[in-house]
Design a protein around this nucleic acid. Sequence first.
RNA 1: GGAGGGGUGGCCGAGCGGACGAAGGCGCGGCGCUGGAAACGCCGUGUGCCCGUUUUUCGGGCACCGAGGGUUCGAAUCCCUCCCCCUCCGCCA
Length: 426
Amino acid sequence: MLDLRLIRKNYGEVRQRIATRGEEYVKLVDEVYRLDKEKREIQKEVEILRALLNKKSREYGKLKREGKEDENLKRELSQIKENLSRLEEKLKLLEEELYQTLLRIPNLPHPTVPVGRDENDNVEVRKWGEPPKFNFNPKPHWELGEYLGILDFEKGTKLSGSRFVVKRGLGARLVRALINFMLDLHTKNGYLEMYVPHLVKPEILIGTGQLPKFEEDLFKCERDGLYLIPTAEVPLTNLHRDEILKEEELPIYYTAYTPCYRREAGSYGRDIKGLIRLHQFDKVELVKITTPERSYEELEKLVRDAEKVLQELELPYRVVELCTGDLGFSASKTYDIEVWMPSYNRYREISSCSNCEDFQARRMKLRYKTKNGKNLYCHTLNGSGLAIGRTLAAILENYQQEDGSVSVPKALRPYLGGLEVIEPHG
RNA sequence: GGAGGGGUGGCCGAGCGGACGAAGGCGCGGCGCUGGAAACGCCGUGUGCCCGUUUUUCGGGCACCGAGGGUUCGAAUCCCUCCCCCUCCGCCA
């Protein structure tokens, strides 16, 4: 949520910056500006009337206790109350409309973010490793997975429909190995491992920005009013909502493994094969809560922490900085990490690391008390560290051998009982 | 799912129709006492919004005692609905 006072004071600048994400948001800013102005006028009237009512009420009570009755005063009071309730009704509607509009405005991009329309305008920051050269025709991971008997897409569809998969034997074991490997790495780097609920209340999703705008992307348990989480960012970031943390407690680093559930509305036909785009996938997530002064430094470190996973697995990747048009709703600045995928002959997103500044913190009232006693909003950051399914796909494709077997990255072998090669199994 | 108990400031806890943003205690901060410290004494110590002034400051107003509604001139206090927590019983991984 944007700071209303910023919109009031720097109206022109906010309009301009929000426009770099898409022109459609400018009119929302205009609407907020107008509603806020009107709301404050009404609020002023309401408060003046209420102060008057409080004062007269005390007078009336005093008389009453002295056994006196003042009919004129009583009439005046009911007159004030009548005006007041009409104004209050109006104020409530305005406040609600203002809030709802504000909730649909995305975060302001950081001034350093390249201005652009879509992913084509993203900027490559750095590259690591070399894409493998095959002297045979490399297979896509879904073919390898089925050949090896570790991925079963048919069974996934049988159970749950399209965009679901069953992992079998070593496939299932690899998921478990990757989760453990990543959590071990991150906890070594100072992240506190958490295990969190996968179903959350709507206000939790409002906190991180998935609601109200992206309801259609979520799975909902209607009966209970709960939603399946689309990422562990949601429960992790909300852990301290409605709290005032001590400055000394910051920064807080969390990591958690969770499954992620996404309806993928509007992506029909995209990445229909393989592990790239599923309704349910696994992910190890990184979340940081920091002070505003440190948050950009922390973002750089967060990306490095996520990169470490790929470096240890020896998978080639690059880091790109998202342009304004490609930025997620809550993010001020985002780095994507893209891993090399031979079957696509290009890099594909495997992690997204964002600084949301105070955008989420304001939505969830997540604050900290400074040393001199001021309450300020925290900055929140999150990043994948990493998406398990896509990591598995990248391993299969990059480590495949001519006979269809796949060698196991060295870093992962301890998690698979020393296994060096994945071969077809029944 | 059934029966009972309860939600008040950072915490404990009083208040059960007006002078209550809320006693008292603990904690925390400052000052005093001390060679230093403990103990003790004094002072201070919630959050949000609006208006004015203003860089920080300060002054005024409004709201907040789980949430929402109602009664009343006036509600933390009375009534209704909902949520949450605790105890016991049932069911259950």
